[in-house]
Design a protein around this nucleic acid. Sequence first.
DNA 1: CCCCAGGGCCATA
DNA 2: TATGGCCATGGG
Length: 301
Amino acid sequence: MPSILIPKPQNFSFKECLWFLDRNYDDCLYHVSATSVIKPLRVNGHKVIFELTEKGQELVADVIWNESGGDHSKVITAYVNDWLDLERDLSGFYQLLKGHTAFDYMPEEFAGLRLIGIPDVFEAICWCIIGQQINLTFAYKLKRRMVEQYGESVELDGKVHHFFPKPEVLAEATMEDLKDLQFSRQKADYVIHVAGLISSGEFSKEALLALPDREAQLKRLIAVRGIGEWTANYVLMKTMKDMNCITIGDTGLNSALDAHGLVKDKKDKAEVRAFFEAFEGWKSYLVIYLWRSLTSPDIAK
DNA sequence: CCCCAGGGCCATA
DNA sequence: TATGGCCATGGG
């Protein structure tokens, strides 16, 4: 199977994206190295594993395992474009950052970092529910346990590649099953409930896309048990690629704003929202870059 | 031992 | 509409 070539846009850094994918956490849904990421993916029900590297002006995707043997080039190209947000022109965002005294270092320090997406809405919601109110190290541990217990996996050259569990599988899990993985009662209930909504077709990314505007999408998400304002904004940002999401109330966002000395009271949601107004059209990206700044304590002033 | 982690639900007033 | 308790675990 020939390599799949995907052109790199301006203001794109594969290295920055790899760094963000890794961040020294133990994510079970891909393998990141200094120069590549290996990603398992379902394509129309078939499992595929591809490795993404870069060469010259292009990203190179090589299928390293293919369940069906079919040609999935187009789907993989579309997936990578969506996943790494390659079709967005960041020049407007960088102009805004350069014009802001606290952020003017970002276009250079974090050059080419993209909004890494979570195209699968079920995965995004589960990740949010898991991550609610616990530290990220523990959150990644819980996700790994859930994925290892309920997802499919393929072993290649000693590496295990995990596919995120299907909603219909988790819909059949019991509270006790998940509590054994150290989920709290609430988290177990939320995950099983959402799995049921999605597997029954009551909730879907397609239905969300069909809604008239972002307010309707937020409202629909928040109507789901376990999804509040924070999760709804996270999902709109990571799955729907909405550019004006603020993960309001987020502790990471708050501490980043605090580190930059930007708001008087980081708990004041109205003040945080007002601060973001100057970044209309790029609010989601500002959140991503603020999260990125958390791991550069020497940079944040 | 205490507090807080990339929250959200529920009861209460 | 606002506030407080609760959840599970781990690290500071």
